[in-house]
């Protein structure tokens, strides 16, 4: 089916933007040094990246009349609801399991607080 030029461009830009964020997230995962720093790269860029891809799919499929776009909206909604909880739980679990911070770090107020309250 013929898709208008403007929609084509918009969908492509959204896809590329989403993929750029996903790629950056992966790159950060490889490059950063400890669990905590890596959580930044993956959980955030991924949220944005997936949102971009899903938005592109929403626009395209909605135009073609193949989808009402409700499912895509729900994906984005649940992504934004669950991503921070997951990242928080991983970081918390890592800290409790004794995973240390990268030695290039500058402050650790949490450790200080834990020492004082034990």
């Amino acid at each position: 089916m013929q898709v208008p030029y403007l929609l084509d461009v918009l969908v492509s830009v959204l896809l590329l933007l989403g993929l750029f964020f996903l790629l950056t997230g992966t790159f950060g995962l490889l490059r950063l040094r400890d669990v905590y720093a890596r959580m930044h790269a993956t959980s955030k860029s991924t949220t944005f990246g997936v949102a971009g891809v899903v938005l592109a799919s929403l626009l395209y499929l909605r135009y073609l009349g193949l989808s009402s776009g409700l499912k895509e909206s729900l994906i984005v909604l649940f992504l934004f609801l669950t991503a921070p909880v997951g990242a928080h739980m991983i970081a918390r679990a890592a800290y409790r399991a004794g995973v240390s911070l990268w030695q290039g770090g500058v402050v650790d107020d949490f450790k200080k607080w834990l020492d004082e309250n034990r």
Binding site: F27, R31, A37, S45, F48, G105, V106, D109, F110, K111
Partner: peptide, 25 residues
Amino acid sequence: LLIANWTVVRQVLALKLAIRPGIVA
């Protein structure tokens, strides 16, 4: 969200990794 995303992208893609991570109370 937009501002911070851009900052992190810049930090991750910078030629020299110039970050000082830490936990703040």
